[in-house]
C-alpha cells in the first residue's frame, strides 16, 4: 500500500466492520439512508402533504370541495391554456428538435455541425426563465427588434395582426426556444443507437431508404420520440419564471395562478392552492408515467 499511509491508519477498525460481503444487508442499507432521508424530507413529504391538503378544508376535515373548485370556469380555462401552450410547444419542439438532430447526426453534414449543435443545445435548453423572457421582449415585444424592423422597413405592424408576446402564440414561440434544444439533447442518444448495419442489412435485402425509415428506424425510435415529447410537455407545464417575467400575472395559466395564489396576490384560499398543485402533479405525472413506460419499452428492444 504505497499511497497515503495517513488515510489508512485511522481506518482499519471501520473497514473491518464494513467489509464483510456476507454480512446481513442491514449495513448495506445504511449506505443509502442519507439519500432516502433527503428525498423523503425535501421531495416526497412536501408533495404528499399538498396532496392530502387538497382533500381537506380549512379545519382539516375531509372534503372534495377543493377539487370541485378546480372545475370552475376560470380555473378550468387556466388548465386548458396551460395544456395548449405545453402541448403546442412540446409537439413543435419535439418535431423540430427531432429533425434538427436527425439532420446533424445522419444528414451527412460537415463534422463540426454536430458538436456545435450539442453545445448550443446545452446552453439554450438551460437558457430558460427570466433572461429568456427579456430576450424575447427585446425581439418580439412592442419595442422589439423584429417588431421595429418590420414596422420601419416592411411597413408591417406585427401587433395589428393581433399578435402579442403575451398571447398563446407568443408564449409558445418563447417556450420553443428551450424546448427544441431540449429535444435535441434527449433524443440524440436514441438516434445514435440506430446502427449502421441495420441500414445496410435492409439495403442488402432490397429495402429502399424509405423502407428503412418506415419499417426499421421509426419503429425503433418512436418510443423515444413520443417519450421525449411527453417530457417536454411536463417541462412546459410546470414552468413559471418565463411566463411570469413575460406577462406578469396577466396570463391565466396554472403555474402563474398558483404562484399568485401562494404569494397571496389574488385570492387566498390555501386548500384551493393545494388542489391546484395536485392538478399539476396529476397532469405532469401522467405524461411522465407515459415517458417512463415508453422508455422502458424502447430499452427492452435493444440488444
Amino acid at each position: 500500500m504505497p499511497t497515503s499511509p495517513d488515510s489508512v491508519t485511522h481506518c482499519p477498525p471501520e473497514a473491518g466492520q464494513a467489509r464483510p460481503r456476507l454480512a446481513p444487508s442491514a449495513l448495506n442499507w445504511l449506505g443509502v439512508v442519507p439519500f432516502f432521508l433527503f428525498a423523503l424530507l425535501f421531495l416526497i413529504l412536501p408533495t404528499a402533504t399538498l396532496m392530502i391538503g387538497a382533500f381537506q378544508d380549512a379545519n382539516g376535515h375531509f372534503t372534495l370541495g377543493n377539487i370541485a373548485k378546480l372545475f370552475d370556469d376560470s380555473i378550468l380555462s387556466a388548465y386548458w391554456i396551460s395544456f395548449e401552450v405545453s402541448a403546442a410547444s412540446a409537439l413543435g419542439g419535439g418535431l423540430i428538435g427531432l429533425l434538427l438532430a436527425l439532420a446533424a447526426i445522419q444528414g451527412g453534414l460537415p463534422g463540426w455541425i454536430r458538436p456545435t449543435l450539442m453545445t448550443f443545445s446545452g446552453v439554450a435548453s438551460n437558457f430558460a426563465g427570466i433572461p429568456l423572457s427579456f430576450a424575447f421582449l427585446s425581439t418580439l415585444g412592442r419595442m422589439g427588434l423584429v417588431t421595429v424592423l418590420l414596422r420601419n422597413y416592411a411597413d408591417f405592424d406585427l401587433y395589428s395582426t393581433g399578435f402579442s408576446i403575451l398571447s398563446f402564440i407568443g408564449l409558445t414561440l418563447t417556450y420553443l426556444y428551450f424546448q427544441i434544444p431540449l429535444m435535441v439533447l434527449i433524443v440524440t442518444p436514441a438516434i445514435d443507437g440506430l446502427r449502421a448495419e441495420w441500414r445496410e442489412a435492409c439495403e442488402s435485402l432490397g429495402g429502399s431508404s424509405l423502407a428503412y425509415w418506415w419499417h426499421i428506424a421509426l419503429p425503433i425510435l418512436w418510443p423515444s420520440i413520443l417519450g421525449s415529447t411527453l417530457l417536454l410537455f411536463a417541462n412546459a407545464f410546470g414552468a413559471v419564471a418565463t411566463a411570469y417575467a413575460l406577462t406578469g400575472s396577466s396570463l391565466n395559466i396554472v403555474p402563474i395562478l398558483l404562484y399568485a395564489q401562494i404569494r397571496g396576490d389574488v385570492l387566498h384560499d390555501q386548500n384551493l392552492g393545494y388542489a391546484l398543485a395536485l392538478g399539476m402533479i396529476v397532469v405532469t405525472g401522467l405524461s411522465n408515467a407515459g415517458y417512463i413506460w415508453l422508455r422502458s419499452r424502447a430499452e427492452r428492444g435493444r440488444e
Partner: peptide, 8 residues
C-alpha cells in the same frame, strides 16, 4: 422533472 418546482 415530474413535480414542478412551484409545487415542491
Amino acid at each position: 422533472l415530474v413535480i414542478p418546482a412551484i409545487v415542491i
